[in-house]
Simulated assay, not measured.
Amino acid sequence: MPDHEQRSSYPRRTVLRALTIVSVGAGLVSTGATHAAVARDLRAGMSGADVRELQIRVAGWASDGSRQAFLDVSGYFDAPTEAAVRRFQQAHGLPASGVVDQATHGRLSAMATADGSTAHFEWSQFASPDGSGFAGGTVDEATVRENVRRLMYKLEALRHKLDGRETEVRDGFHSSDHRARLRGPDDSTHTYGGTADIAVASLTTYAVYQAAQSCGFSGLGSYVQSWLHCDSRAEYSHRAPAAWSWHNGVI
């Protein structure tokens, strides 16, 4: 992920947008630039890397209720993207125009940190418990990291919908070796990176499950335990298409 040394290597006269995109491994990540220059307004019908990054950041606003839907990160500003932007804007006290103006860019940029993680979630929370970091999974490390990064933004949306309550990540990525020691399935979503088992302060798992149903998760575990399993299995382009798995169904 980009560090401060890499960021300082940009020419002083370079104009950086609020959602400046740079290539990192298999995916894209924002530098979280804070320069005075502004990003272009984004609206329906546009396309590009900045639209793709926008879709990653508003993916947790894929639905306005309990519906099995996720936002396709295609780089094209389609109707579902516009609807997700409107929900994000409304939730953050902005005019729900569906156009990503400078105020909306500011809110989106505020969610990102310099190392590519998000405001309320850190890479270390998702690393494999056996000390292998993000290596040794079903897919390469860069892909795992990108899956984790995208998951963070969905969790940011979930956290916001739960009134900003502290969200504990109890489990994230598992290396294949760690998964074998647990005697779990080899093709577990934990070995792809886009998975977390979470618990939210002062809330039942059932309450978290209800809110998570609007956040674009294609895998939700049982709410009769002390944590909630969340994953994005239907979005893994590097995996055979997986059926949605909401353990207890739509509430």
Rank of each mutant, 00 (worst) to 15 (best):
Q6F: 15
S9L: 15
P11I: 01
R12S: 10
T14G: 02
T14N: 08
V15W: 11
V22M: 08
A26D: 15
A26G: 07
D41F: 11
L42H: 07
A44E: 13
R52E: 14
I56S: 09
V58N: 08
V58F: 09
W61F: 14
W61M: 10
S63F: 03
G65P: 07
L71R: 02
L71H: 05
L71F: 11
G75Q: 10
Y76A: 15
Y76W: 13
D78L: 03
R86E: 10
R87L: 13
R87Y: 06
F88S: 14
A91H: 07
H92T: 01
A96Q: 05
G98D: 06
G98K: 10
D101M: 09
A103M: 00
T104L: 07
G106F: 10
R107S: 00
R107F: 01
A110P: 08
G116L: 05
A119F: 06
F121W: 00
E122L: 08
S124D: 13
F126N: 02
P129I: 08
A135S: 15
D140N: 13
T143W: 07
V144R: 00
E146T: 02
E146W: 02
E146N: 08
V148D: 05
R150I: 07
L151D: 06
M152V: 00
L155C: 03
E156I: 02
E156Y: 01
E156H: 06
A157K: 04
A157P: 09
A157I: 00
K161M: 13
K161D: 15
R165S: 05
E166N: 12
E166H: 14
E168K: 15
D171G: 06
G172K: 07
F173W: 04
D177W: 02
D177K: 08
R183S: 06
G184W: 14
G184N: 09
T189E: 12
T195P: 02
T195M: 01
D197P: 05
D197V: 05
D197W: 05
I198C: 02
A199Y: 07
V200Q: 03
A201R: 14
L203Y: 01
T204N: 03
T205G: 03
T205L: 10
A212S: 12
S214H: 04
C215W: 01
S218K: 04
G219A: 01
G219R: 02
L220C: 12
V224D: 15
Q225H: 09
S226C: 11
S226M: 10
C230K: 01
C230L: 12
D231A: 05
R233F: 04
E235V: 03
E235M: 12
S237R: 13
R239A: 02
A240H: 07
P241R: 14
H247A: 15
G249A: 07
